[in-house]
Design a protein around this nucleic acid. Structure first.
Length: 278
DNA sequence: CTTGTGTCCTGTAGGC
DNA sequence: TGCCTACAGGACACAA
């Protein structure tokens, strides 16, 4: 669930809590959430370094450590990061980073699908190959109609599944792809290569718009409350969703009589309005 | 290369 | 009441 806006919000919230602090020690409570190197080396190598800054690439959160190395976190579906006081140990804590000053950064991940990596910027491990192949950031200037058109040209897959492909536009997941397609008035089932130039233009604009709005509202906190900001508060974009989680409800678009429908594309759900998305 | 499918993982929702 | 199954989702391995 954490997609680009949620990861960006987490990054912004964590930055002042981490930068300048030193990692006093690392406890790996579950080895398989460490993607690289192996858990023992990870714990040994990360300990002792100081946080110098943060950045983000797609859904990857990068915590910069001194010496140009990075602690990279992917939250996948249910992961989150919180800064806790020394005595607090959250349920489902998988890795704990003790911090100078007594607090700790806790990587909490009930489903254990999320991963942490410790890499040197010159040598990204095969486990992070996906990161190097990642496409343009939809919130950056390089994400133009031309760029998206080139990525979709000749492709027979559904536009929905290509929006979820991180090599096409990184940081997009199920929520924001559904929302962008609704804003653009395009059905998720459409063959990507069959979109007109005008439709691709609307889609590029919609992706930029919906992701920037997601960031502006600090991400989407659904009913399960799994995603929250580092200070524990909820995001605000869930109140502005137009199709995600609105199956069976009337379309948001003024004047549209449609009822939001859910279809299966590949192995994930897509929601759309049959009346205003063609 | 492209596309679709299965897998990982576990809490939760729904059925009976 | 309680068990059982299906489902959710991001990324990747794999088959066709």
């Amino acid at each position: 669930m954490p997609e680009l806006p949620e990861v960006e919000t987490i990054r912004r919230g964590l930055t002042p809590l981490l930068v300048g602090r030193r990692i006093s020690g690392v406890v790996v409570r579950r080895n398989d959430v460490v993607g690289f190197p192996d858990a023992a080396d990870f714990a040994r190598q990360v300990a002792g370094h100081r946080f110098t800054g943060t950045s983000r690439r797609g859904k990857y959160l990068m915590l910069e450590l001194e010496g140009g190395r990075q602690l990279i976190v992917h939250l996948r579906l249910s992961g989150h990061l919180e800064v806790v006081t020394g005595s607090v140990r959250p349920r489902y804590e998988r890795v704990r980073f003790g911090l100078s000053g007594g607090k700790a950064l806790s990587f909490v991940e009930p489903r254990a699908l999320g991963r942490v990596y410790f890499v040197n910027w010159t040598a990204y491990p095969p486990a992070l190959a996906g990161m190097r192949e990642m496409g343009e950031e939809p919130v950056r200037a390089g994400f133009t109609t031309d760029y998206l058109a080139a990525k979709l040209r000749g492709r027979k897959a559904s536009v929905k599944s290509l929006l979820l492909d991180q090599r096409v536009c990184c940081g997009v997941g199920n929520i924001y792809s559904d929302e962008a397609l609704h804003r653009a008035g395009i059905r998720p089932t459409r063959r990507a290569g069959r979109l007109s130039r005008a439709e691709v233009g609307r889609l590029a604009r919609a992706l930029r718009g919906v992701l920037n709005d997601g960031i502006k509202w600090c991400g989407t906190t659904m009913e399960d409350g799994r995603y929250v900001l580092p200070d524990g508060t909820r995001g605000g974009f869930q109140e502005r969703l137009r199709v995600f989680g609105r199956e069976g409800q009337r379309c948001w678009r003024p004047g549209c009589e449609g009822v939001i429908r859910r279809v299966q594309i590949g192995n994930r759900g897509a929601r759309y309005c049959p009346a205003c998305q063609e």
